[in-house]
Amino acid sequence: MAAQVITANRLVDGAVVYLSADGQWVQSLEEASVAEGEAAAAALVAAGDRAVAGRLVVAPYLIEVDRGPEGIQPRRYRERLRATGPSIPFGGGMKG
């Protein structure tokens, strides 16, 4: 089973966020809490549900990641784009 992190879009501005180890929703994938195994992943999902109820984020879901020398890397291309922003000028990820 691959390592997983939980991601969502922030309710107020739609920014891509990840749940960090200290329970904050942060924009940096590097700070995400990485779950190994089913119990840890279930804990992330539960935290995601609480954040939906608390109106912090929209539609959280788990993504598969690898940890290498370049840090946390999503497996799917779509998630790599979400982590870094559009691959073209103008975008470049969320501000702030």
Binding site: G14, V16, R55, A59, P86, M94
Partner: peptide, 28 residues
Amino acid sequence: RRLSGELSEEEFKPLRLMNGLYLQLHAY
């Protein structure tokens, strides 16, 4: 009503969509 929690995302989505507001990959 959405920001106050009166509307869930499921309830709000069709309302925002009727006004051209999508939630895309990186943002609204």
